[in-house]
Design a protein around this nucleic acid. Structure first.
Lengths: 167, 167
DNA sequence: GTCTATAATTTGATAGAC
DNA sequence: GTCTATCAAATTATAGAC
């Protein structure tokens, strides 16, 4: 993966988290990274492929961060809460997969499958430590919803307020 | 409010819930309602005004539904849960204000204020019955997040699973 | 109120030179 | 790998006839 391809993924992730799949263009990404839009197409031939690659990388990184927190001693719920909180602090934006999930019915199959993967892996990981399926869904839903609420209220503390009861 | 204006609001609500603010056009709405796009502009001069009107009507209707459930004997949390579940059943789509909140940082002020109103009124209403602020945010976040999860998994039962523990 | 027509811009994507 | 140039289509919005 070249530096340019990585810069493109970084720019696309930021744009999608701010404005969703339909809220950015190849020219936006080109301007963000200092190349021309045709060069963006060279690395990612279609918008669907680009968004799918962004979602896949985001999910992989997110799951790795969760595992790191667990290794460092967090219980699984706290590890998830911390990973979400860090994404909010670092970027001040919505969860990438949450932003895409909001328009799931409008996404191309390839993109939707990657977004769905984030949620399925999350539920599976929470269940692997003894959570019931209901509890796993509730925890993930609360975290995504708290991030959504913090985003619309433009108030980071709303995320903490909404998720303290999780543990 | 004319029949045409109401049909436009209906179509715009459906489109936004499926694809977000950036996922529909005046021509889409025109095709949905059987008029020309210039006629849509006659009723709602700009896309911002149209989306703001949709969000305002959605919030007013949603809050009225919650009050109806409370009058019918539900406790406040169950009333909210039922209102969300009905929106999911009736339309099979994301909450309109949740769909818009996901791209809150990209919305025009006029639209963002209306979306924020949904969340602020929701938190206030929950707090009015004795909830702490933390609990109110947590309940609303869990409901929005469960709707998001059900949308991306394309599985209505995920909404029930994520929200049973609320009461 | 709705229409036709159109302006001005942006979009995803491609061809071909270097 | 990146560029210039371009295409065909779609976008928000407006002017003016009826």
């Amino acid at each position: 993966m070249s530096d340019t391809a990585q810069a493109i993924l970084n720019a696309a992730e930021e744009r999608i988290r701010q404005a969703g799949y339909n809220g950015f263009s190849f020219r936006d990404i080109a301007a963000d990274t200092g190349v021309k839009s045709s060069s963006v197409h060279y690395h990612f031939p279609t918008k669907e492929k680009l968004a799918a690659a962004v979602a896949r990388r985001y999910t992989d990184r997110f799951m790795a961060a969760v595992e790191d927190h667990i290794t460092a001693g967090d219980d699984v719920t706290s590890a998830w809460r911390r990973a979400f909180g860090e994404a909010l602090d670092r970027d001040g934006r919505m969860c990438l997969c949450g932003a895409l999930a909001a328009t799931a019915h409008d996404l191309a199959d390839e993109v939707r499958q990657e977004v769905k993967r984030f949620f399925v892996l999350g539920i599976d990981r929470l269940m692997a430590t003894g959570c019931s399926r209901d509890a796993a869904i509730r925890i993930l839903a609360t975290l995504e919803g708290a991030m959504l609420t913090a985003t619309v209220l433009d108030d980071r503390s709303a995320f903490d307020s909404g998720t303290t009861a999780l543990g």
